[in-house]
């Protein structure tokens, strides 16, 4: 089966006055149809910019300077703005962290949803579009959608607003949804509800999902595969179960150790010392060198290439494969 999205060596750089910020520098991964891929990283790791690049939403001074983004056989990076327009919200859609920012506060939910349908299907009648919008709201678990779609965004609670934006993202039955921190702003019980709806919808519609988040535990619960980003590069990717149970890159290991867990209560967390280096001024060699316990001379001089360690796992670390994984 051919992947629905293939990102090959994507490079998105920002040309600022202070210098070139390599926000995304050589990212490659695939998403198959109906698959949930978790893209995990800390702030400044480039995970959101990767998502924006796929959507063609990178604004100046940012620019995709290299690589290909193949979506169903077409290169998104080379598309004209018109082509992108017909793709966005139609075959690929996006869900953002803060639904208050993505919904228009002065339009009724209904107006916004009908607009999104008509933008991609000018032949559809208004009543048909309304019916589709209503069904979409019902699908994400909003009760009494007929009345609720007459409401304005501020009349919804945070969790409900996020459901509305999920409904809008699903309107045109996209093949791929990019969700950028969709549950970060929500409370635990509401987060559970939203994840539950997303899981169910993606299973029913066979929509592929790229779930961008900093929360490793959320990804562990929903993703089929995981990509861990650090300073603009994917340092480790693989199937979720084996990656979580046996992380190979020192950064992934540190990240896992940083998450409080019931099993290790009372013991100090395994922290990663230091902090993320400035993207303006990355060290030569591996970007993780100043925080890594296993650093060697080789790490200082060369940028590690992805190493295939089997079971569809790739790791960017020179130490992997040279010694038994501990």
């Amino acid at each position: 089966m051919k992947p629905i999205l293939q990102i090959e060596n994507l490079q998105t750089h920002f040309f600022t006055k202070a210098g070139v910020v390599k926000a995304v520098d050589g990212v490659s991964f695939d998403i198959n149809a109906g698959e949930v891929v978790g893209l995990v990283g800390e702030s400044g790791s480039g995970k959101s910019i990767t998502g924006f690049s796929v959507m063609g939403l990178v604004d100046a001074p940012g620019k995709i300077v290299g690589g290909r983004i193949m979506f169903q056989g077409e290169d998104i990076a080379a598309m004209s703005p018109q082509q992108l327009q017909s793709l966005r919200g139609n075959r690929i859609s996006m869900i953002f962290q803060d639904p208050m920012m993505t919904l228009n506060p002065v339009l009724r939910v209904e107006t916004q949803m009908v607009e999104a349908i008509k933008a991609h299907d000018s032949m559809i009648s208004k009543s048909e579009a309304r019916a589709r919008a209503r069904d979409a709201l019902g699908l994400v678990g909003i009760s009494a959608p007929e009345e609720r779609m007459r409401a304005y965004p501020h009349q919804f609670s945070g969790g409900m607003r996020q459901r509305v934006s999920i409904a809008i993202a699903m309107l045109n039955r996209p093949d791929l949804i990019i969700a950028d921190e969709p549950t970060t702003a929500l409370d635990v019980t509401i987060q559970g509800q939203v994840i539950h709806e997303m899981q169910r919808l993606c299973e029913v519609t066979k929509t592929a999902l790229l779930w961008i988040t900093h929360d490793l535990a959320v990804v562990a619960g929903i993703a089929d595969r995981i990509c861990v980003m650090y300073a603009g590069r994917v340092v480790e990717q693989g199937p979720i179960a084996s990656t979580i149970s046996q992380p190979l890159h020192p950064y992934t290991r540190g990240l896992m150790g940083s998450v409080p867990s019931q099993n290790r209560r009372g013991q100090p967390l395994q922290q990663i010392d230091g902090m993320v280096p400035s993207l303006l001024n990355l060290p030569s060699g591996c970007a993780f060198q100043n925080r890594c316990a296993m650093v060697s001379d080789k790490c200082l001089s060369e940028i590690p290439e992805p190493i295939d360690v089997g079971e569809q796992r790739l790791v960017r670390c020179v130490n992997v494969g040279q010694e038994p994984a501990s």
Partner: peptide
Amino acid sequence: KALLAGVPRLEVGKREYEPVSGEI
């Protein structure tokens, strides 16, 4: 119980969420 069930956990791995209904 609902709160504890809703917490995403690393050690649990892939799972179905069964959330409490309703809003705060």
